[in-house]
Lab assay of single mutants.
Amino acid sequence: MATGGRRGAAAAPLLVAVAALLLGAAGHLYPGEVCPGMDIRNNLTRLHELENCSVIEGHLQILLMFKTRPEDFRDLSFPKLIMITDYLLLFRVYGLESLKDLFPNLTVIRGSRLFFNYALVIFEMVHLKELGLYNLMNITRGSVRIEKNNELCYLATIDWSRILDSVEDNYIVLNKDDNEECGDICPGTAKGKTNCPATVINGQFVERCWTHSHCQKVCPTICKSHGCTAEGLCCHSECLGNCSQPDDPTKCVACRNFYLDGRCVETCPPPYYHFQDWRCVNFSFCQDLHHKCKNSRRQGCHQYVIHNNKCIPECPSGYTMNSSNLLCTPCLGPCPKVCHLLEGEKTIDSVTSAQELRGCTVINGSLIINIRGGNNLAAELEANLGLIEEISGYLKIRRSYALVSLSFFRKLRLIRGETLEIGNYSFYALDNQNLRQLWDWSKHNLTITQGKLFFHYNPKLCLSEIHKMEEVSGTKGRQERNDIALKTNGDQASCENELLKFSYIRTSFDKI
């Protein structure tokens, strides 16, 4: 039985969820670079991206490699990797027998973001014989899940209580170790020597080791999670996991709180800001991140802002960003909400898709409305799209047979046209069989910064309504002859009103 693990408890099935942008060198404390989270699957090609990484700022997932063999891993080693800020997950990587050479110096898994409450997941690794993470000293947050690894031993010899604050939620089941077939031998045991430290858990006094050649490092209890030197002297209180010299914040392997210019500090002093819960960055760093993602459509890219001495992905609820200094300031009234469309555009074809934009005031991208039916549609669209004030790209209304009016965009005031449909149009209306009105132009103002209007096959939309939009939106004169079809717009509506004058002759039985 794995020490510190839980057996036999019912657990939810383990679901495996399925960018080499360097964020800056980590400095003297770390020998390499800070790398983003990685999802490495199918083959070993991307694994080489770990070569210079000291910190993975995010998670590391290595999974679904069915053609790899043990010899493929023999020359692979990433000794610079010290810390993973989120979680480490391995799933069905064939041929991998140990992690001792792959990650010989991995010391800390912070667990800032977890995989279903777990910071370390080893699942269905069919050839893994031992973990071998002999320098792993601290899992700051989260638990361990090690399950269905039929060859995995050296679990009962690990004292997880020396690595985690609590072992109650560890789930370590259905491994070879369960069948008591392992016969784990710690260093020196074969020669009758006791080389590794022994600890007591559940009444068992057991030597602690990761492999037959690597003991588990056990520091004096007084050192807590700070770690200790090879001689057993406690590291500085700002260290986490390990250090090369005692009581020196510049000799830590990793930091308990924050890293700044080669030393570990309790908090980031001005003019620095907390970033990702582990390091200090200056304003320029946060500003660069903001600008890199301002026009990016890459998933996970955030326009970072500053709030409460932190550089964070977005302002919290009730705050909006001051564009001059990136500071989050309290909103006066309802907060603006910028919604970034991942692929640059979004099609609204149902109430469900409209709900995804609920509360958005600025759309960074283009909207395509293609709704053919739905219950209580006008009210639903207004509830979900009615706060949109600005669209950076274009607005396209296409084959939306259920629409009679666009009044559900009740606050839309600006279409920038930074991206144009077919390279020309910022407003595009095609084949809307029941569209009769755009907006009530006596109450609604709309500016279209650039781009043209396109109207074709809107049989109940009168040309007068379209011409009014040209005047109000500032697009009059931009359109070419064929942009607004004269014969297919309003051709099934009563669009022309003329005053009919009647004269009559009164007659009676005795007068003409």
Rank of each mutant, 00 (worst) to 15 (best):
Met65Lys: 04
Thr329Ser: 09
Ile158Lys: 02
Asn282Met: 07
Ile306Arg: 01
Lys148Asp: 06
Ile222Gly: 12
Ile122Pro: 10
Asn135Cys: 08
Leu152Ile: 05
Asp261Lys: 12
Gln204Val: 08
Cys315Tyr: 00
Gln216Phe: 05
Cys182Trp: 03
Gly333Asn: 13
Phe91Glu: 01
Pro249Cys: 03
Phe78Leu: 07
Phe78Trp: 03
Tyr319Leu: 13
His236Arg: 01
Tyr171Ile: 13
Asn43Ile: 03
Gln245Gly: 03
Thr157Ile: 03
Asn150Phe: 05
Cys286Ile: 07
Arg298Cys: 13
Leu29Thr: 12
Glu314Leu: 05
Asp169Ile: 06
Arg263Ser: 04
Phe258Thr: 04
Val206Ser: 15
Pro270Val: 06
Arg256Gln: 07
Pro31Thr: 07
Asn195Glu: 10
Asp247His: 08
Leu88Ile: 03
Val265Cys: 02
Leu136Tyr: 00
Thr140Lys: 12
Leu90Lys: 00
Leu88Cys: 00
Glu238Ser: 09
Leu44Gly: 04
Lys224Ser: 04
Asp39Gly: 02
Leu120Ile: 15
Ser284Cys: 02
Gly188Cys: 11
Val55Asp: 00
Glu57Pro: 00
His214Arg: 04
Val173His: 15
Asn242Arg: 13
Val55Ser: 02
Ser112Tyr: 10
Asp159Ile: 13
Gly300Ile: 05
Thr229Tyr: 05
Leu164Lys: 13
Tyr154Ala: 07
His291Pro: 02
Asp72Ser: 02
Lys217Leu: 12
Leu106Val: 03
Asp288Pro: 02
Glu180Lys: 06
Leu326Asn: 13
Glu314Val: 05
Lys148Ile: 01
Glu180Gln: 11
Tyr118Met: 08
Leu164Gln: 04
Cys252Ser: 00
His48Gln: 14
Thr199Tyr: 05
Arg256Thr: 08
Ala156Thr: 05
Leu332Cys: 03
Thr194Leu: 13
Thr229Ala: 12
Cys268Thr: 00
Lys67Thr: 14
Cys209Lys: 06
Glu51Lys: 01
Phe103Met: 12
Val281Lys: 04
Lys251Ile: 00
Leu332Ala: 15
Asn295Val: 03
Gly111Asn: 00
Leu29Asn: 12
Glu180Met: 10
Cys209His: 02
Gly95Ile: 15
Glu231Ser: 06
Asn242Asp: 09
Cys209Leu: 02
Asn117Thr: 08
Pro104Val: 01
Ser213Leu: 09
Asn179Asp: 05
Leu60Lys: 00
Ile158Pro: 04
Tyr87Cys: 00
Thr140Phe: 05
Asp277Ile: 05
Pro104Ile: 01
Glu238Met: 09
His291Cys: 15
Lys191Glu: 02
Tyr304Asp: 03
Asn52Leu: 04
Ser112Leu: 12
Leu233Pro: 07
Leu155Tyr: 06
Met65Pro: 01
Leu99Tyr: 01
Asn43Met: 08
His226Gly: 15
Trp210Pro: 02
Pro330Tyr: 15
Pro316Ile: 11
Leu106Trp: 02
Ile201Leu: 13
Ile185Arg: 03
Gly318Trp: 14
Pro79Glu: 12
Arg41Ala: 08
Asp86Lys: 02
Ser317Asp: 07
Thr189Asn: 05
Glu181Pro: 03
Pro269Leu: 06
Ser244Pro: 04
Asn175Met: 03
Ile84Lys: 00
His214Phe: 08
Asn309Met: 12
Leu89Val: 00
Leu106Asn: 02
Asp169Lys: 11
Leu88Arg: 01
Thr329Leu: 11
Thr194Asn: 13
Tyr319Val: 03
Val121Gln: 01
Phe91Ile: 10
Arg162Ala: 13
Pro246Cys: 04
Phe66Ser: 05
Leu128Ser: 01
Asn242Lys: 08
Pro336Asp: 12
Ser166Pro: 13
Thr45Met: 11
Gln276Pro: 10
Asp39Arg: 14
Pro316Val: 06
Met38Ala: 08
Glu314Arg: 12
Asn170Glu: 09
Lys224Met: 07
Glu130Phe: 14
Gly300Pro: 13
Ala119Ile: 00
Glu231Asn: 05
Asn179Gly: 14
Glu238Asp: 13
Gln245Lys: 12
His212Trp: 13
Ile163His: 01
Thr250Gln: 07
Pro316Asn: 09
Pro336Trp: 13
Tyr118Leu: 06
Tyr94Gln: 15
Ser323Phe: 10
Gly32Asp: 13
Lys80Leu: 11
Thr194Ser: 09
Gly203Cys: 04
Ala190Gly: 04
Glu33His: 11
Asn150Met: 04
Arg298Met: 07
Cys280Gly: 00
Gln216Asn: 10
Pro269Ile: 15
Leu120Val: 12
Lys129Ala: 12
His59Phe: 03
Glu314Gln: 07
Leu50Lys: 00
Leu327Arg: 07
Ile306Ser: 02
Leu120Tyr: 00
Glu147Ala: 10
Val108Asn: 11
His236Asn: 10
Phe285Ser: 11
